[in-house]
Amino acid sequence: MNEVAEPVATGVITGGWSYIWAAYGVTWAALLLFLGRALLLSRAPDPEPE
């Protein structure tokens, strides 16, 4: 350990839950929004022409 300084990074990631919540949160939110919109549109009454 003469020339080499103290390790700058350990090679292991600690923490980072904000990234995890971002990935899962946005995914679930988008899926549920799309699902809700699709459900609404699929249940809308069929506009009969004239």
Binding site: V12, I13, G16, Y19, I20
Partner: peptide, 13 residues
């Protein structure tokens, strides 16, 4: 082992 908790994004990605 290396990515720690961040590796859990695996299950959604």
């Amino acid at each position: 082992a290396m990515m720690g908790d961040v590796g859990r994004i695996l299950y959604v990605h």
